[in-house]
Design a protein around this nucleic acid. Structure first.
Length: 418
DNA sequence: TCTGGGGTCCTAGGACCC
DNA sequence: TCTGGGGTCCTAGGACCC
């Protein structure tokens, strides 16, 4: 048996942990630059605030209903996530952390000795007690069905006690008939459109389709999903894998048209990525850079470009990454365009200890020592050392007007009690 | 005025190899 | 007139996830 555990309205719930007076009150959390709504409490959902709406579109609604607004505080959410995950890990040795607020778990053989429903209810209570984060649990024989079960638990918290088990064909069919096709894990906008056009409106309709049709129109990914929904496990439980890509991309707070402004952003992204790469003890050998103009402004000239280049040798040096990223940026930059976003992506990632021998060149040994010294100093000082191309005057600031404190990770921001 | 960020996997088609 | 067959690797792009 699989379980899918999912934190309810995770970011909003994190904000509530240290502000219990907000229980029962509507909350929304915004994306970077306070641009879009990325999380909502149940109360905010019932006000009709939709996921991912630009904040300015609901500002009036928010003010009228005294909705509490927060900028996203990833340091807080990341730490709360770790707490929830380590609590979950005490209930089964097999846990796959799927995202910041979700985990798949395996409970093979448990059903012989435990009543899964009451076991699940115990898990929700323990997690709530130790972290104050509410969760929902769905049990089923496959991952895709566990997702469906989880959705039911979340939708009917009173009837299910936030835990739902799919363990018979009858329950499975009922659950699949209840699940709209667009809500199925792995069915996005495009597939929903095509499926509805041929009369497939629920998950149950979907599993009636022939394998051949699904294979032809939705590739092996769709076929695996179909089998998984029938109850034959095709989507594997996965161990923690090292990342294959590391990205740093940002929208600008305003539009830029000068190369030097974008160049500064790219050098800052390179520094962040180099540090991430070294932290996980890896090298990369592919570097991609992209720029895009403001596609919401159809009145302006548009330009978007994305280029990937190979490095001469696997590297984790910020200087080397930035040198290449700057070269790529120059090749895709066009003047007289108002740019709104840029990003750098590292791939071809390998562990730092597996070396590919090269006849000519390789990482400059001086860089290796230099990066070590910089990382160490920055760790001690909270980021004192910057690179020459970076924004030394701190002109670039993310809009974060409603940021809560880092209650659990910063000594100076601990919760104060009167 | 204001519109997020970071990932995964699969496929088709071209370049290249023997 | 007739012009092979079987591979691998790489890349761009599309679909999806949270």
């Amino acid at each position: 048996m699989f379980a899918l555990v999912d934190c309810n309205n995770f970011y909003a719930s994190c904000e509530r942990v240290f502000k219990p007076q907000l229980n029962g009150k509507p909350i929304v959390v915004l994306s970077n630059n306070d641009g879009c709504v990325v999380a909502r409490s149940n109360e905010a959902k019932s006000l009709g605030i939709k996921m991912a709406v630009p904040f300015f579109e609901v500002k009036e609604l928010v003010q009228k209903n005294n909705v509490n607004v927060f900028s996203s505080n990833y340091e807080l959410y990341g730490d709360m996530s770790n707490r929830v995950m380590s609590m979950l890990a005490t209930f089964s040795p097999e846990i796959e952390v799927y995202s910041i607020d979700e985990a798949f778990m395996r409970f093979d053989g448990f059903e012989e000795y435990f009543d899964l429903h009451s076991y699940g209810v115990t898990i929700t209570q323990k997690v709530k007690q130790s972290t104050k984060i509410p969760i929902s649990i769905g049990f089923a024989p496959t991952k895709a069905l566990a997702k469906v079960a989880n959705k039911i638990a979340k939708k009917f918290p009173d009837r299910t006690q936030s835990c739902f088990v799919i363990d018979t064909d009858e329950k499975r069919n009922k659950a699949l008939k209840w699940t709209e096709i667009g809500d199925v894990w792995g069915i996005g906008r495009q597939h929903t459109k095509r499926l509805k056009a041929i009369g497939v409106n629920t998950a149950y309709d979907f599993i009636q389709l022939s394998d051949a049709w699904v294979r032809k129109n939705m590739s092996v990914v769709g076929l695996r999903l179909k089998h998984d929904l029938v109850g034959i496990s095709f989507i594997d439980f996965e161990d923690v894998k090292p990342k294959q890509n590391i990205a740093c991309t940002r929208s600008f707070e305003k539009m830029y048209d000068k190369l030097e402004d974008i160049s500064e952003r790219v050098s800052t992204f390179s520094a962040i990525l180099g540090e991430k790469l070294r932290k996980q003890n890896s090298h990369c050998n592919l570097i991609s850079v992209f720029v895009t103009s403001n596609y919401f402004r159809e009145d302006l000239a548009q330009h978007r470009a994305f280029i990937t280049v190979k490095t001469d040798f696997p590297t984790s040096s910020t200087l080397e990454i930035n040198r290449i990223a700057q070269r790529v940026l120059k090749s895709i930059y066009k003047p007289n365009i108002s740019y709104k976003k840029a990003g750098v992506i590292l791939s071809g990632i390998t562990p730092a200890d597996t070396f590919q021998l090269k006849f000519f060149g390789g990482e400059n040994p001086k860089h290796i020592d230099l990066m070590k010294a910089i990382d160490l100093t920055n760790k001690k000082t909270g980021g004192l050392i910057k690179f020459g191309g970076n924004d030394l005057k701190r002109r670039h600031k993310m809009r974060q007007e409603k940021l809560s404190k880092c209650y659990t990770t910063n000594w100076y921001e601990l919760l104060e009690v009167d």
